[in-house]
């Protein structure tokens, strides 16, 4: 039996997630692992927007903010389980992406970047200033999802970080599976045709505006889920989750790893989430070093770290 590229990518991802803990010296690394997987989920969404459809967004953390605060606020005000907060956040983000996507996606290049940037900053400002609802810049606590309690009930004996690592592993595999499926579907082919040339795609009968919007909404849902999950993991959320820097981190991860492939972007998320932990000693120089790494990769490996390394590997073989 011959496996498709999609299946290989998923198997590789599953094996890496399953085997990585063997190299973890302490359970702190599970926490970093869980964060990598959460960022991995967000950048998988960005691959659909950047890599498939060829659009840019500098404001996706805005959707993470909506997801994060939905997970925090909905259980408090409606008295429901936090999982409904997560779902409601995703629906809200999708709706908002649909509304703003129509006008915003008419813009191209820099203009699109600036418009999405503005959206992210707006969400950040609202979360910061509506202090009576969101707790303002000090943030607010988030009800537990109950994963730890579930694991204890099953007698697995895992701590919070470990539970979340395995849970996020499963979530990311599902997210990656859906994104990879989309790639080879008719919708995915239409999206990729936009990436190459909108005019050509249009003349071939692809509804350009609709497909751009589809990609935007899907990626917003991924970002929203990542925001909710991060809030639930921490049991706490601050407006930083919707901050400009958070958007930029995601874009950097996606582009560094390789915006065209899901695995590449997740690889980028892993590198850029783990690196600051390795660089804590050089905290003052962290941004400088990240910038330097980014520049070197962009100059010498314009397709991104992952595709370039994969190519090199094939050549050596």
């Amino acid at each position: 039996m011959r496996l498709s590229g999609k299946a290989w990518a998923l198997i590789a991802l599953a094996v890496i997630i399953a085997l990585a803990p063997l190299a973890f010296p302490s359970s702190f690394y599970y926490r970093v692992g869980a964060l990598i997987l959460i960022n991995g989920l967000a950048v998988t969404g960005l691959v659909i927007l950047f890599g498939y459809a060829g659009q840019i967004s500098l404001g996706h953390a805005g959707f993470a903010g909506i997801g994060g605060y939905a997970a925090a606020l909905i259980p408090i005000h409606l008295g429901v389980h936090p999982v409904f907060g997560l779902i409601a956040g995703a629906i809200l983000s999708a709706g908002l992406a649909f509304l703003i996507g129509r006008p915003v996606l008419r813009l191209k290049g820099y203009y699109l970047a600036v418009a999405t940037l503005g959206f992210g900053i707006l969400v950040y400002l609202v979360l910061n200033n509506e202090a009576q609802l969101t707790g303002g810049p000090d943030g607010m606590s988030v009800e537990r999802l109950g994963l730890r309690a579930l694991s204890d009930a099953l007698g697995l004996g895992l701590n919070t970080s470990q539970v979340w690592y395995w849970f996020m592993g499963v979530v990311l595999l599902i997210g990656a599976y859906l994104a990879l499926n989309l790639f080879t579907s008719p919708t995915g082919r239409a999206l990729r045709s936009l990436h190459d040339s909108e005019v050509a795609a249009g003349t071939l009968g692809v509804d350009v505006a609709r497909y751009k919007l589809t990609a935007f909404v899907i990626s917003a849902v991924y970002a929203s889920l990542a925001g909710s999950l991060q809030a639930l993991l921490n049991g706490f959320v601050t407006p930083d989750v919707a901050g400009f820097l958070h958007s930029i981190q995601w874009v950097t991860m996606t582009v560094l790893g390789g915006a065209g492939t899901v695995l590449g972007a997740i690889f980028g998320a892993a590198v850029l989430t783990a690196l600051p932990q390795a660089l804590t000693v050089f905290k003052e120089y962290e941004h400088m070093m990240l910038g330097l790494i980014m520049m070197v990769v962009m100059v010498f490996m314009p397709a991104g770290l992952f595709p370039s390394l994969a190519k090199l590997f094939r050549r050596v073989r």
Binding site: F28, R31, V32, L35, G139, N234, D240, V241, Q277
Partner: peptide, 12 residues
């Protein structure tokens, strides 16, 4: 000054 980062460092 980032709460998420602080949480990771606290775990560490």
């Amino acid at each position: 000054g980032d709460a998420n980062q602080a949480r990771t460092l606290a775990t560490r």
